[in-house]
Design a protein around this nucleic acid. Structure first.
Lengths: 174, 174
DNA sequence: TAGTTTTGTTTCAAACTTGAACCAAGCCCG
DNA sequence: CGGGCTTGGTTCAAGTTTGAAACAAAACTA
């Protein structure tokens, strides 16, 4: 199998993709760092927690949602905890487990940062795209994500104290 | 202006986007790290140099193409130089300038890594998408990129010894 | 139930990235 | 010419990310 090189069309798409995604992440990170003193990932941690029931999530679940490694999350939460945005609690049903809990201060920070963040997301992405393209983008990204994670999910929702629920907090903190 | 939150559709698109891009970068980085001992960015440095006339580019130009900061590039090239993939030379027309030059070893490494990389790009992206979606993706990403860099480019191609040219080396090392 | 494997999470050291500060070398203009 | 501003690049310190190794509790299994 002598390697199926990318077609010119694919090449262009790939390069555009790499450029665009890198630019977008930079823009988002910069804004968040400026206005909230934390990088995108850290903001996402707060955002996810804010939507979780009781504003708490187990480390593994959080890592799963955010699509990052446990290790990375550990460090992120450690920093957020030091800054008072998050609190930790041992999971009483599984003594190995550890819960990350959004504090009021974390919630406040999130609410303060959300508007600017949304603006940036808009400016970076949605302002440039037609409604149709937004739909296409969603479809494309969903495909890709699905392909990259075999969908070994579907589990969870099994044990009661691990149920996934939703109770949005900051409307669309993204 | 009370913040225009994202519509549900936009929310979904944004979240899918964040998840997908993060997964893709991870996959690419992992593969390249495994097979070539370097992260995606470093590979891209080699790839860009391989296409440049005489396999050389000024630091600023390289940073521009790659859409990264000069600082980041300095460190990347330093590492690649230490590993013998790249050589540096002073720019004789502008004594401030510095050229990064792909060595034969760097070229060899690139050629060795390219097939696996392309496979991963395919597996991560193109295998999941229809031809139409590939086109859509390119259009979308181009829009976004254009929006995020005001296009203060168009310059360059002015000074002869800075001309951009092309003389592809590893066919589609991406 | 002891031994083994798996799962949840942290820790370590090494690598990478960041933004600001810094140093030259070009440029510009009176 | 002699500042002063801009441009090309590097350096610094601090922060973040990585993958592998280490732990400990839970789940199996014989």
């Amino acid at each position: 199998m002598t390697t199926r090189w990318l077609t010119p069309k694919e090449q262009r798409a790939w390069r555009a993709y790499v450029a665009a995604t890198s630019l977008v992440e930079d823009a988002i990170d910069r804004q968040l760092q400026q206005d909230a003193g934390m990088p995108h990932l850290y903001y996402s941690v707060l955002a996810m927690l804010s939507e979780a029931p009781e504003r708490r999530l187990r480390m593994t679940d959080l890592a799963e949602v955010l699509k990052i490694t446990r290790s990375r999350l550990t460090y992120a939460v450690a920093r957020l905890e030091k800054d008072g945005m998050v609190r930790r609690e041992a999971c009483q049903y599984d003594k190995r487990g550890s819960l990350a809990i959004l504090t009021d201060e974390g919630m406040a920070t999130l609410e303060r940062a959300a508007p600017g963040h949304v603006d940036t997301v808009r400016a970076s992405l949605f302002d440039q795209l037609s409604e149709e393209q937004v739909e296409q983008l969603e479809a494309i990204c969903s495909e890709i994500a699905r392909g990259l994670q075999g969908d070994e999910r579907a589990a969870a929702d099994e044990v009661p104290w691990r149920r996934r629920a939703s109770q949005p907090s900051v409307s669309g903190c993204t």
